[in-house]
Design a protein around this nucleic acid. Sequence first.
DNA 1: TCTGGGGTCCTAGGACCC
DNA 2: TCTGGGGTCCTAGGACCC
Length: 426
Amino acid sequence: MSSINYNKKKLALVDCNSFYVSCERLFNPKIQNKPVVVLSNNDGCVISRSNEAKALGIRMGEPYFKVKELIKRNNVHIFSSNYALYGDLSRRVMKVLKTFSTNVEIYSIDEAFIDLSFLKEEDVENYGKEIRKKVLKWTGIPTSVGISTTKTLSKVANHIAKKERTGVMYLNKNIDERLKKFPIQDVWGVGRQLSKLYVKNGIENAYQLKSVSNTWVKKSTNVLGSRTAMELRGITCIGLELHEEKRKNCCVSRSFGKRITDLQKLEEAVSTYCLNAAEKIRGDDQICRGLTVFIRTSPFNKNKKYYSNSQTAELPIATNNSIELVKYARKILKGMYKPGYHYQKAGIILSKLKDADKNEVNLLTPLMDDRSKTLMKAIDHTNNKYGRHAITIASAGIHKGWKMRREHSSKIDTASFNYLPKVSAS
DNA sequence: TCTGGGGTCCTAGGACCC
DNA sequence: TCTGGGGTCCTAGGACCC
Protein backbone atom coordinates (compact mmCIF):
# COMPACT_ATOMS: atom_id res chain seq x y z
CA MET A 1 0.00 0.00 0.00
CA SER A 2 1.30 3.40 -0.86
CA SER A 3 0.81 6.06 1.70
CA ILE A 4 1.34 9.19 -0.29
CA ASN A 5 0.58 12.44 1.46
CA TYR A 6 -2.62 12.93 -0.53
CA ASN A 7 -4.42 10.37 1.60
CA LYS A 8 -3.30 11.88 4.83
CA LYS A 9 -5.29 14.16 7.04
CA LYS A 10 -4.66 17.85 6.94
CA LEU A 11 -5.63 19.40 10.21
CA ALA A 12 -5.32 23.09 11.00
CA LEU A 13 -5.15 24.62 14.44
CA VAL A 14 -6.19 28.27 14.35
CA ASP A 15 -5.24 30.13 17.50
CA CYS A 16 -5.92 33.79 18.23
CA ASN A 17 -2.79 35.76 19.08
CA SER A 18 -2.80 37.14 22.64
CA PHE A 19 -6.56 36.79 22.45
CA TYR A 20 -7.76 38.86 25.42
CA VAL A 21 -5.24 41.60 24.66
CA SER A 22 -6.33 41.62 21.02
CA CYS A 23 -9.96 42.01 22.14
CA GLU A 24 -9.11 45.04 24.28
CA ARG A 25 -7.07 46.53 21.45
CA LEU A 26 -10.04 46.40 19.11
CA PHE A 27 -11.79 49.04 21.18
CA ASN A 28 -8.71 51.00 22.05
CA PRO A 29 -6.48 51.65 19.04
CA LYS A 30 -4.05 53.67 21.15
CA ILE A 31 -2.66 50.49 22.65
CA GLN A 32 -1.56 48.96 19.35
CA ASN A 33 2.14 48.17 19.41
CA LYS A 34 2.28 48.98 23.12
CA PRO A 35 2.84 46.52 25.96
CA VAL A 36 -0.53 45.34 27.27
CA VAL A 37 -1.59 42.70 29.80
CA VAL A 38 -4.97 41.34 30.87
CA LEU A 39 -5.42 40.21 34.46
CA SER A 40 -7.41 37.27 35.80
CA ASN A 41 -10.43 37.64 38.04
CA ASN A 42 -9.71 39.61 41.16
CA ASP A 43 -6.81 41.20 39.28
CA GLY A 44 -4.78 38.26 40.54
CA CYS A 45 -2.56 37.00 37.73
CA VAL A 46 -1.43 37.97 34.25
CA ILE A 47 -3.35 35.77 31.81
CA SER A 48 -2.80 37.46 28.45
CA ARG A 49 0.20 39.44 27.20
CA SER A 50 0.97 41.36 24.06
CA ASN A 51 4.27 40.55 22.36
CA GLU A 52 5.70 43.78 23.76
CA ALA A 53 4.74 42.67 27.28
CA LYS A 54 6.28 39.23 26.69
CA ALA A 55 9.49 40.94 25.58
CA LEU A 56 9.65 42.73 28.94
CA GLY A 57 9.85 39.35 30.64
CA ILE A 58 6.33 39.25 32.06
CA ARG A 59 5.44 35.59 32.32
CA MET A 60 2.13 33.83 31.81
CA GLY A 61 0.26 33.25 35.06
CA GLU A 62 2.52 35.52 37.04
CA PRO A 63 0.88 37.13 40.10
CA TYR A 64 0.17 40.77 39.38
CA PHE A 65 1.73 42.11 42.57
CA LYS A 66 5.06 40.54 41.61
CA VAL A 67 5.27 42.43 38.32
CA LYS A 68 3.51 45.59 39.43
CA GLU A 69 6.73 47.59 39.55
CA LEU A 70 7.94 46.33 36.18
CA ILE A 71 4.56 47.17 34.71
CA LYS A 72 4.61 50.69 36.12
CA ARG A 73 8.16 51.36 34.99
CA ASN A 74 7.42 50.35 31.42
CA ASN A 75 4.00 51.95 31.09
CA VAL A 76 2.33 48.62 30.44
CA HIS A 77 -1.41 49.01 29.90
CA ILE A 78 -3.46 46.88 32.29
CA PHE A 79 -6.97 45.47 31.91
CA SER A 80 -9.16 43.45 34.24
CA SER A 81 -10.67 40.58 32.32
CA ASN A 82 -14.00 41.14 30.59
CA TYR A 83 -15.29 37.68 29.70
CA ALA A 84 -18.55 38.91 28.23
CA LEU A 85 -16.54 40.78 25.61
CA TYR A 86 -14.11 37.94 24.91
CA GLY A 87 -16.92 35.40 24.62
CA ASP A 88 -18.74 37.57 22.13
CA LEU A 89 -15.67 38.11 19.94
CA SER A 90 -14.87 34.41 20.18
CA ARG A 91 -18.25 33.53 18.72
CA ARG A 92 -17.61 35.89 15.82
CA VAL A 93 -14.20 34.38 15.09
CA MET A 94 -15.63 30.84 15.17
CA LYS A 95 -18.40 31.85 12.80
CA VAL A 96 -15.84 32.99 10.26
CA LEU A 97 -13.82 29.79 10.68
CA LYS A 98 -16.89 27.73 9.92
CA THR A 99 -16.98 29.24 6.44
CA PHE A 100 -13.74 27.41 5.61
CA SER A 101 -14.78 23.84 6.40
CA THR A 102 -17.81 21.92 7.55
CA ASN A 103 -15.67 20.12 10.10
CA VAL A 104 -14.64 22.57 12.79
CA GLU A 105 -14.03 21.73 16.43
CA ILE A 106 -14.17 24.71 18.76
CA TYR A 107 -11.50 23.71 21.21
CA SER A 108 -11.40 26.70 23.53
CA ILE A 109 -12.36 30.35 23.65
CA ASP A 110 -9.53 31.24 21.26
CA GLU A 111 -8.72 28.04 19.35
CA ALA A 112 -10.31 25.76 16.81
CA PHE A 113 -9.24 22.66 14.87
CA ILE A 114 -10.31 22.62 11.24
CA ASP A 115 -10.29 19.59 8.96
CA LEU A 116 -8.73 20.63 5.66
CA SER A 117 -8.19 17.14 4.26
CA PHE A 118 -10.16 18.06 1.16
CA LEU A 119 -7.36 20.39 0.02
CA LYS A 120 -4.68 19.51 -2.50
CA GLU A 121 -1.21 19.44 -1.09
CA GLU A 122 -0.09 22.52 -3.01
CA ASP A 123 -3.05 24.62 -1.85
CA VAL A 124 -2.70 24.10 1.87
CA GLU A 125 -0.42 26.98 2.75
CA ASN A 126 -2.38 29.55 0.77
CA TYR A 127 -5.60 28.37 2.32
CA GLY A 128 -4.06 28.97 5.74
CA LYS A 129 -3.19 32.50 4.69
CA GLU A 130 -6.76 33.05 3.51
CA ILE A 131 -8.08 31.97 6.89
CA ARG A 132 -5.90 34.48 8.68
CA LYS A 133 -6.80 37.25 6.31
CA LYS A 134 -10.54 36.75 6.52
CA VAL A 135 -10.64 36.43 10.31
CA LEU A 136 -8.60 39.60 10.66
CA LYS A 137 -10.74 41.49 8.18
CA TRP A 138 -14.08 40.39 9.56
CA THR A 139 -13.33 40.45 13.29
CA GLY A 140 -10.12 42.41 13.74
CA ILE A 141 -8.49 39.53 15.62
CA PRO A 142 -5.01 38.34 14.50
CA THR A 143 -4.45 34.59 14.43
CA SER A 144 -1.78 31.98 13.81
CA VAL A 145 -2.42 28.85 11.79
CA GLY A 146 -0.56 25.56 12.25
CA ILE A 147 -1.30 22.68 9.90
CA SER A 148 -0.20 19.04 10.00
CA THR A 149 -1.56 15.49 10.13
CA THR A 150 -2.53 15.12 13.80
CA LYS A 151 -3.78 17.47 16.48
CA THR A 152 -0.53 17.24 18.41
CA LEU A 153 1.58 18.02 15.32
CA SER A 154 -0.74 20.90 14.37
CA LYS A 155 -0.17 22.29 17.85
CA VAL A 156 3.57 22.08 17.22
CA ALA A 157 3.14 23.80 13.86
CA ASN A 158 1.05 26.54 15.46
CA HIS A 159 3.71 27.09 18.11
CA ILE A 160 6.33 27.53 15.40
CA ALA A 161 4.10 29.90 13.41
CA LYS A 162 3.68 32.06 16.52
CA LYS A 163 7.31 31.99 17.49
CA GLU A 164 8.64 32.77 14.04
CA ARG A 165 5.82 35.23 13.38
CA THR A 166 5.14 33.72 10.00
CA GLY A 167 1.41 33.46 10.63
CA VAL A 168 1.05 30.12 8.88
CA MET A 169 3.15 26.98 9.29
CA TYR A 170 2.45 23.84 7.31
CA LEU A 171 4.43 21.09 8.95
CA ASN A 172 4.64 18.46 6.23
CA LYS A 173 8.35 18.12 5.54
CA ASN A 174 11.53 18.05 7.61
CA ILE A 175 9.29 17.20 10.52
CA ASP A 176 12.02 15.45 12.49
CA GLU A 177 14.36 18.41 12.17
CA ARG A 178 11.64 20.66 13.60
CA LEU A 179 10.79 18.25 16.39
CA LYS A 180 14.45 18.05 17.42
CA LYS A 181 14.32 21.77 18.18
CA PHE A 182 10.97 21.56 19.96
CA PRO A 183 11.33 21.49 23.78
CA ILE A 184 9.54 18.59 25.44
CA GLN A 185 7.69 20.85 27.89
CA ASP A 186 6.06 22.70 24.99
CA VAL A 187 4.44 19.56 23.61
CA TRP A 188 0.64 19.52 24.00
CA GLY A 189 -0.26 17.11 26.79
CA VAL A 190 3.14 17.30 28.49
CA GLY A 191 2.81 19.33 31.66
CA ARG A 192 5.14 19.94 34.55
CA GLN A 193 5.12 16.44 35.99
CA LEU A 194 5.50 14.57 32.73
CA SER A 195 8.26 16.82 31.44
CA LYS A 196 10.15 16.28 34.69
CA LEU A 197 9.87 12.54 34.18
CA TYR A 198 10.91 12.72 30.54
CA VAL A 199 13.91 14.95 31.17
CA LYS A 200 15.05 12.61 33.92
CA ASN A 201 15.07 9.88 31.29
CA GLY A 202 17.00 11.91 28.76
CA ILE A 203 14.02 13.00 26.67
CA GLU A 204 14.36 16.71 26.14
CA ASN A 205 12.67 17.36 22.81
CA ALA A 206 9.67 16.18 20.83
CA TYR A 207 11.81 14.08 18.48
CA GLN A 208 13.20 12.06 21.36
CA LEU A 209 9.70 11.36 22.67
CA LYS A 210 8.66 10.27 19.21
CA SER A 211 11.64 7.90 18.99
CA VAL A 212 11.42 6.20 22.36
CA SER A 213 9.68 2.81 22.50
CA ASN A 214 5.95 2.83 22.99
CA THR A 215 6.11 0.17 25.68
CA TRP A 216 8.38 2.38 27.70
CA VAL A 217 6.04 5.38 27.42
CA LYS A 218 3.00 3.32 28.33
CA LYS A 219 4.77 1.77 31.29
CA SER A 220 6.18 5.04 32.57
CA THR A 221 3.11 7.20 32.08
CA ASN A 222 -0.42 6.25 31.04
CA VAL A 223 -2.55 6.01 27.92
CA LEU A 224 -2.53 9.79 27.53
CA GLY A 225 1.26 9.86 27.48
CA SER A 226 1.44 7.17 24.84
CA ARG A 227 -1.24 8.88 22.77
CA THR A 228 0.88 12.02 22.64
CA ALA A 229 3.94 10.03 21.51
CA MET A 230 1.91 8.28 18.80
CA GLU A 231 0.50 11.57 17.55
CA LEU A 232 4.03 12.95 17.21
CA ARG A 233 4.68 9.98 14.93
CA GLY A 234 1.78 11.11 12.76
CA ILE A 235 -0.69 8.48 13.95
CA THR A 236 -4.08 9.91 14.79
CA CYS A 237 -5.16 9.07 18.34
CA ILE A 238 -7.14 12.16 19.21
CA GLY A 239 -10.04 12.68 16.82
CA LEU A 240 -11.98 15.79 15.93
CA GLU A 241 -15.00 16.32 18.11
CA LEU A 242 -17.59 17.84 15.89
CA HIS A 243 -20.65 18.04 18.07
CA GLU A 244 -20.57 19.83 21.34
CA GLU A 245 -21.18 17.56 24.27
CA LYS A 246 -23.03 18.92 27.23
CA ARG A 247 -20.91 19.51 30.28
CA LYS A 248 -20.71 16.88 33.00
CA ASN A 249 -19.91 19.21 35.87
CA CYS A 250 -20.57 22.86 36.48
CA CYS A 251 -18.31 24.79 38.81
CA VAL A 252 -18.61 28.37 39.99
CA SER A 253 -15.94 29.62 42.34
CA ARG A 254 -14.23 32.90 43.15
CA SER A 255 -11.57 34.33 45.34
CA PHE A 256 -12.87 37.12 47.52
CA GLY A 257 -11.85 40.74 47.13
CA LYS A 258 -11.26 40.76 50.89
CA ARG A 259 -10.73 37.90 53.29
CA ILE A 260 -13.90 36.68 55.02
CA THR A 261 -14.16 35.46 58.58
CA ASP A 262 -17.84 35.19 59.38
CA LEU A 263 -20.31 32.57 58.32
CA GLN A 264 -22.95 34.95 57.08
CA LYS A 265 -20.71 36.46 54.39
CA LEU A 266 -19.56 33.01 53.33
CA GLU A 267 -23.20 32.03 53.03
CA GLU A 268 -23.86 35.02 50.82
CA ALA A 269 -20.98 34.14 48.53
CA VAL A 270 -21.83 30.44 48.31
CA SER A 271 -25.50 31.22 47.70
CA THR A 272 -24.58 33.62 44.91
CA TYR A 273 -22.28 31.07 43.22
CA CYS A 274 -25.01 28.50 43.57
CA LEU A 275 -27.51 30.77 41.83
CA ASN A 276 -25.05 31.32 38.97
CA ALA A 277 -24.38 27.61 38.59
CA ALA A 278 -28.08 26.73 38.69
CA GLU A 279 -28.80 29.34 36.05
CA LYS A 280 -26.03 27.91 33.86
CA ILE A 281 -27.33 24.35 33.93
CA ARG A 282 -30.90 25.51 33.39
CA GLY A 283 -29.61 27.28 30.30
CA ASP A 284 -28.46 23.89 29.01
CA ASP A 285 -31.62 22.12 30.15
CA GLN A 286 -29.75 20.05 32.66
CA ILE A 287 -30.43 18.92 36.20
CA CYS A 288 -27.90 17.74 38.77
CA ARG A 289 -27.73 15.08 41.42
CA GLY A 290 -24.51 16.02 43.13
CA LEU A 291 -23.64 19.26 44.89
CA THR A 292 -20.21 20.04 46.33
CA VAL A 293 -19.28 23.09 48.36
CA PHE A 294 -15.67 23.96 49.10
CA ILE A 295 -14.05 26.70 51.15
CA ARG A 296 -10.43 27.46 51.90
CA THR A 297 -8.05 30.00 53.35
CA SER A 298 -5.10 31.29 51.35
CA PRO A 299 -2.56 28.52 50.64
CA PHE A 300 0.12 31.19 50.13
CA ASN A 301 -0.08 32.95 53.45
CA LYS A 302 2.45 31.22 55.67
CA ASN A 303 1.60 33.37 58.69
CA LYS A 304 -1.94 32.12 59.05
CA LYS A 305 -3.35 28.69 59.72
CA TYR A 306 -4.49 26.91 56.58
CA TYR A 307 -7.91 25.32 56.37
CA SER A 308 -9.55 23.75 53.37
CA ASN A 309 -12.58 21.54 53.19
CA SER A 310 -15.08 20.28 50.69
CA GLN A 311 -18.19 18.21 51.05
CA THR A 312 -20.56 16.65 48.60
CA ALA A 313 -24.24 15.95 48.96
CA GLU A 314 -26.16 13.45 46.92
CA LEU A 315 -29.55 14.95 46.15
CA PRO A 316 -32.54 12.66 46.60
CA ILE A 317 -34.05 14.00 43.40
CA ALA A 318 -32.10 15.57 40.55
CA THR A 319 -32.95 19.23 40.16
CA ASN A 320 -31.95 22.61 38.76
CA ASN A 321 -34.11 24.58 41.14
CA SER A 322 -32.12 27.48 42.58
CA ILE A 323 -33.99 27.63 45.86
CA GLU A 324 -33.62 23.93 46.42
CA LEU A 325 -29.90 23.93 45.58
CA VAL A 326 -29.11 26.95 47.73
CA LYS A 327 -30.81 25.22 50.63
CA TYR A 328 -28.47 22.23 50.35
CA ALA A 329 -25.42 24.39 49.75
CA ARG A 330 -26.00 26.38 52.92
CA LYS A 331 -26.52 23.24 54.91
CA ILE A 332 -23.22 21.78 53.70
CA LEU A 333 -21.42 25.03 54.35
CA LYS A 334 -22.66 25.24 57.92
CA GLY A 335 -21.29 21.78 58.54
CA MET A 336 -17.80 22.74 57.35
CA TYR A 337 -17.42 26.27 58.59
CA LYS A 338 -14.93 26.85 61.35
CA PRO A 339 -14.61 30.25 63.01
CA GLY A 340 -11.23 31.91 63.39
CA TYR A 341 -10.00 31.45 59.82
CA HIS A 342 -9.48 34.04 57.10
CA TYR A 343 -11.27 32.53 54.14
CA GLN A 344 -9.94 33.46 50.71
CA LYS A 345 -12.03 31.42 48.33
CA ALA A 346 -15.20 29.39 48.06
CA GLY A 347 -16.92 27.51 45.32
CA ILE A 348 -19.67 25.18 44.31
CA ILE A 349 -19.71 22.24 41.92
CA LEU A 350 -22.88 20.79 40.47
CA SER A 351 -22.12 17.25 39.37
CA LYS A 352 -23.85 14.19 37.92
CA LEU A 353 -25.51 16.42 35.36
CA LYS A 354 -28.03 15.01 32.96
CA ASP A 355 -30.68 16.23 30.57
CA ALA A 356 -33.74 17.56 32.33
CA ASP A 357 -36.12 15.54 30.15
CA LYS A 358 -34.45 12.29 31.18
CA ASN A 359 -35.45 12.80 34.77
CA GLU A 360 -37.00 9.70 36.21
CA VAL A 361 -40.32 10.26 37.87
CA ASN A 362 -40.17 9.49 41.50
CA LEU A 363 -43.01 8.88 43.88
CA LEU A 364 -41.49 11.55 46.05
CA THR A 365 -41.37 14.09 43.27
CA PRO A 366 -43.26 16.91 44.85
CA LEU A 367 -46.34 18.28 43.19
CA MET A 368 -44.75 21.69 43.25
CA ASP A 369 -42.56 20.61 40.35
CA ASP A 370 -44.49 22.49 37.71
CA ARG A 371 -44.87 25.56 39.83
CA SER A 372 -41.16 25.76 40.58
CA LYS A 373 -40.30 25.28 36.92
CA THR A 374 -42.48 28.25 36.04
CA LEU A 375 -40.84 30.29 38.76
CA MET A 376 -37.30 29.46 37.55
CA LYS A 377 -38.27 30.34 34.00
CA ALA A 378 -39.61 33.69 35.13
CA ILE A 379 -36.42 34.41 37.07
CA ASP A 380 -34.16 33.49 34.16
CA HIS A 381 -36.21 35.55 31.78
CA THR A 382 -36.11 38.64 33.99
CA ASN A 383 -32.40 38.32 34.68
CA ASN A 384 -31.73 37.90 31.01
CA LYS A 385 -33.57 41.08 30.29
CA TYR A 386 -32.51 43.30 33.16
CA GLY A 387 -29.11 41.90 34.01
CA ARG A 388 -28.00 39.05 36.17
CA HIS A 389 -29.49 39.11 39.66
CA ALA A 390 -32.16 41.64 38.95
CA ILE A 391 -34.04 38.98 40.87
CA THR A 392 -32.19 37.09 43.53
CA ILE A 393 -32.84 35.52 46.89
CA ALA A 394 -32.23 36.99 50.29
CA SER A 395 -29.43 34.68 51.36
CA ALA A 396 -27.25 35.86 48.47
CA GLY A 397 -26.87 39.19 50.25
CA ILE A 398 -27.20 42.74 49.06
CA HIS A 399 -23.93 44.46 49.84
CA LYS A 400 -21.55 41.75 48.71
CA GLY A 401 -18.50 43.25 50.37
CA TRP A 402 -16.63 40.07 49.39
CA LYS A 403 -16.96 40.68 45.66
CA MET A 404 -13.87 40.42 43.53
CA ARG A 405 -11.70 43.33 42.52
CA ARG A 406 -11.81 44.60 38.94
CA GLU A 407 -9.99 47.86 39.06
CA HIS A 408 -8.84 48.03 35.47
CA SER A 409 -11.91 47.07 33.53
CA SER A 410 -12.40 48.59 30.10
CA LYS A 411 -16.16 48.22 30.72
CA ILE A 412 -16.72 47.48 27.05
CA ASP A 413 -20.00 45.82 26.28
CA THR A 414 -20.46 44.76 22.67
CA ALA A 415 -24.22 44.67 23.23
CA SER A 416 -24.22 48.36 23.99
CA PHE A 417 -24.02 50.94 21.22
CA ASN A 418 -22.23 53.47 23.39
CA TYR A 419 -19.08 51.41 23.36
CA LEU A 420 -18.90 50.51 19.70
CA PRO A 421 -15.85 52.04 18.06
CA LYS A 422 -16.54 54.89 15.69
CA VAL A 423 -15.53 54.40 12.07
CA SER A 424 -15.40 57.22 9.61
CA ALA A 425 -15.83 56.40 5.95
CA SER A 426 -13.76 58.30 3.46
C1' DT B 1 -1.21 43.46 51.43
C1' DC B 2 -1.73 41.40 46.79
C1' DT B 3 -1.13 34.33 43.77
C1' DG B 4 -7.69 32.95 38.39
C1' DG B 5 -11.43 29.97 37.06
C1' DG B 6 -13.64 26.22 34.59
C1' DG B 7 -13.23 22.09 32.62
C1' DT B 8 -11.80 16.80 31.27
C1' DC B 9 -9.80 12.37 31.84
C1' DC B 10 -7.24 8.73 34.30
C1' DT B 11 -5.90 5.86 38.18
C1' DA B 12 -5.66 3.75 42.62
C1' DG B 13 -8.06 2.03 46.14
C1' DG B 14 -12.20 0.96 48.83
C1' DA B 15 -16.77 -1.22 49.06
C1' DC B 16 -19.40 -4.66 47.63
C1' DC B 17 -20.88 -8.94 45.32
C1' DC B 18 -20.67 -13.85 44.27
C1' DT C 1 -15.25 -22.72 60.71
C1' DC C 2 -12.77 -21.93 56.56
C1' DT C 3 -11.56 -16.37 54.91
C1' DG C 4 -9.88 -16.91 47.86
C1' DG C 5 -10.15 -14.42 43.87
C1' DG C 6 -12.37 -12.13 40.23
C1' DG C 7 -15.39 -8.72 38.92
C1' DT C 8 -17.91 -4.04 39.07
C1' DC C 9 -18.84 0.42 40.62
C1' DC C 10 -17.73 4.62 42.79
C1' DT C 11 -14.89 8.38 44.47
C1' DA C 12 -11.01 11.34 45.60
C1' DG C 13 -7.11 13.17 43.98
C1' DG C 14 -3.78 14.14 40.44
C1' DA C 15 -2.42 15.84 35.96
C1' DC C 16 -3.40 18.38 32.22
C1' DC C 17 -5.63 21.99 29.21
C1' DC C 18 -6.89 26.95 28.11
